[in-house]
Amino acid sequence: MVSELVLQAARPSPALLPEEMLLSFHFHCWILKQFKGSLFVQPAPQWQRDSMTDWDPRPAVLSWLQYSSARQLFLDPSLPQQDINLWADLAAQTGRPAAMQLSTPSLFWLPEHRHPLPWQVKRWSDRLAAAFGLLCLIPVFLGVMALMLISSPGPFFFKQWRVGHGGRLFRIIKFRTMVPNADKFHHQVMGNQNGLHKRQDDPRITPIGRWMRKYSIDELPQLFNVVLGQMSLVGPRPWAIYDAIRIPASCRHRMLALPGITGAWQVSARSTQLDLEVVNRMDLQYLGHWSLLKDLSILLQTLPKVATGFGAF
């Protein structure tokens, strides 16, 4: 009954409200603002969230999205992680793209705007190299999957929402290195750890997963993300939601950049440097001095780092 009342109160009337008009209303634990086909999701006041803790919002949100005329969603970075995951899941289920709501005075600082022609060369070479790499790595994929089947029953692949180009959310693809449903225990394991949420003694990591992480074998399926245009071979780290929401507002514009499989942080520090602001500064420096030669240099540096397991856990 509660969910029906909230849903009815939240539904706008398209016949009475023109598209140019800004619609703003409370819905469950959020403030929704709709303008010209875009839906902006922001957290409601804490007292409202506390009053609805026992209600599962998924059916109502799904019903609302199916009814809504919004073509894309923008999620406020101050939303809790579970809210961002919920809206991203249901937006994907209804065929709508979702992105983090990020602001910057100008986009000219991004490499694709400063160097449009070399950037196009990068994008095409990324996809061709990734497609060729996937074909060459088929035996490796099959071997890894066979080892996983023997030592760690469960899904072969792990998918997780990450922040991509322009703040858009996409599902990164990796080989699973943890026990199934490890995400449910993430905050229980990490506690109030500052910096990137990575732990060398993470109890969720499987024996085969620890070996894959040491030599970055778990990262290989991200070549699919490169072929799909969601990632690059070289670029800033694609932040997981639990890391993205803790980034200082002054550094959030970094999340507008195209993420990569390897990058400045991976070849210079990797897991030996987990400070969010320091990693962001490394990535911003890379973006500010981007060139095709810089990307080639990082790729060449990546090979020996991977072979030796540098800074990995």
Rank of each mutant, 00 (worst) to 15 (best):
C251H: 15
H253M: 13
P236V: 02
Q222P: 02
L86Q: 13
P111D: 00
A249Q: 15
V2R: 15
L117W: 11
G37P: 01
W87K: 06
N280R: 03
L147Y: 04
F175V: 13
E277M: 14
R162D: 11
I217K: 02
S69I: 07
P77Q: 03
V278D: 03
R49D: 04
P139C: 01
L258D: 05
A240P: 08
Q188Y: 02
P12A: 09
A129R: 07
L287W: 08
I217M: 12
A44F: 01
P57E: 07
M190L: 13
L137W: 08
T262K: 03
G143Y: 00
F310R: 05
A129F: 14
K214E: 00
P111Q: 00
L32E: 01
L233R: 01
A146C: 04
F156R: 10
S3N: 14
W64Y: 15
R96S: 01
P45V: 10
P139Q: 06
Q46F: 14
A91D: 05
H253D: 12
R58F: 03
Q160G: 01
C136S: 10
S24V: 14
L137F: 06
A130E: 02
C29F: 10
A146M: 11
M231A: 10
S103M: 12
W47L: 12
T308W: 08
L23F: 07
R11K: 14
A88C: 13
K184I: 07
T53S: 13
I261H: 08
T104H: 15
L117Y: 06
P14D: 10
L22D: 12
L22G: 08
Q200I: 12
V267R: 05
I138G: 00
E277C: 13
T53D: 06
D89P: 02
M178Y: 04
L23G: 04
P57S: 05
A249V: 15
S13R: 09
W55Y: 14
Q273K: 09
R127N: 06
Q8P: 00
M255D: 09
Q285H: 15
H28F: 10
G167F: 06
P45M: 06
D56E: 13
R49Q: 07
I173F: 12
K33A: 11
C251E: 14
T94N: 01
K159G: 08
H253R: 15
L117N: 09
I241E: 00
W119I: 02
A99I: 07
S151H: 04
A92L: 11
P238R: 02
A15V: 04
N225T: 05
P207M: 05
A10T: 05
G191V: 07
A129N: 05
P12H: 09
E277I: 13
K305A: 14
S68D: 02
T308S: 11
E20F: 10
D275P: 02
E219G: 09
E19N: 11
Q285A: 15
G167P: 01
T308H: 01
